[in-house]
Design a protein around this nucleic acid. Structure first.
Lengths: 128, 128
DNA sequence: CTTGACCCCGGACCGCAGTACGGGCCGTAC
DNA sequence: GTACGGCCCGTACTGCGGTCCGGGGTCAAG
């Protein structure tokens, strides 16, 4: 009760068993107890694993998640907030880059649709 | 005149010499003539290389660029336009994903700043 | 005559986040 | 008894786009 085999843990978190082992190697999950040689995870490890997956959805890298986990288990709310704001800033940068790409692609499609020869070199005049 | 060594070509296009060789292996650049064993690139290969770099800026993968090059050298403007529109569509998907991340991050930062305990699990109530 | 700047090559390595592979153990159900 | 599912392990491979490494050749300047 309240403890999971690796397969159960993986299923509960919606990840692959291999992923759990991989996270363990990476230090994202601690070595669980092993009575009979098999890993036995307490509920808290499921929470931890879910934390990792949620952080992934937010776009954090595994390296960042490692720090985030340390902060969260230490109750350092401030550090979590700081990390979130930092990530927010880089998301904004990424969005801006994609919007620039988008703009260029539209310009290209427009020019090309007009039968312009610049199309074949992907050269599009810069916006004024 | 009008021909470049690999180093000159690389410099002219703003890439690494290794990158030129890598592109050659990938088939993005054709095998140039070699009088004395050294690669000798005509102007057209500089154009080609620049095309590749511009396509990269637009977010195309090297595999896509390979096709794009074929289309462009064949004068198939339509295919180029189609590729641009396709890429445009996936850029939009990427932007939407990032905006979703952004939204979640903001919600997290807000909740955390309020001293909420959900912060330490990265759990944030879904929007209504 | 050595130093430096080019060039040649094949193959290894980077980061990122897993995924797959091959071999072996254990228990249960058929 | 043997097939199946779950677990164990270490290692290698995936995709992407390069980048670096070690070893070797040629030339001109100092």
């Amino acid at each position: 009760m309240g403890t999971y085999t690796i397969g159960e843990l993986a299923r509960a978190a919606g990840v692959n068993v291999e992923t759990v082992r991989f996270y363990e190697r990476r230090g994202l999950l601690r070595q669980p107890e092993r009575g009979d040689g098999y890993r036995r995870y307490p509920e808290s490890d499921l929470d931890r694993l879910r934390f990792v997956r949620r952080a992934k959805v937010l776009g954090f890298t595994l390296a960042e998640i490692t720090e985030l986990l340390d902060a969260a288990t230490a109750g350092a709310t401030d550090d979590v907030v700081a990390a979130a704001r930092e990530r927010l800033a880089s998301v904004d940068v990424e969005i801006a880059a994609l919007q620039d790409q988008r703009r260029r692609l539209e310009a290209l499609a427009d020019v090309c649709a007009g039968g312009d020869d610049g199309c074949l070199t992907l050269a599009v005049a810069a916006e004024p």
